[in-house]
Amino acid sequence: MVEAIRFRDDIHEEPAVSLDAFLDQSNATAVRIEAGEDARLLLPLLDRISLVEIDFPVFGDGRGYSAAQILREAGYEGELRASGDVLVDQLAYMRRCGFDSFIPDAPIDPKVMEEALARYEHVYQGTSDQRTPIWRHRHG
């Protein structure tokens, strides 16, 4: 198994349970969402979650980006992990949507990743990563 790439210090080792299982059992703190599942079902329970893993079955299935945004916009501060078909060229957008850890199916070259994440100094739009959009730079 490929090692996780983490952008946070607290490591969460509890295996994530499925959304259905999570909604049924009150003691789990890690949950895994499949691409078609509704992240909003977790909103009332955010307090007790420390890890949400969102699966990308293929890199072109972009539902996980919205799921991540929804959780971050609702104030979720725990670990948000992307798993599955996660490629280096998608990492920057995933970071912008609030993902802070990754378990890709195939290993990612750390050097290429570093370059990809550092490439764009500015962003056009506000997202849950709270970077300052260009329009705000223009108008102070």
């Binding site: 072109g60 920057a92 056009y124 739009q125």
Partner: peptide, 12 residues
Amino acid sequence: QWSSFHPEFSYL
């Protein structure tokens, strides 16, 4: 500008 490099809406 808003739609350029939009992280949430690039894999629609």
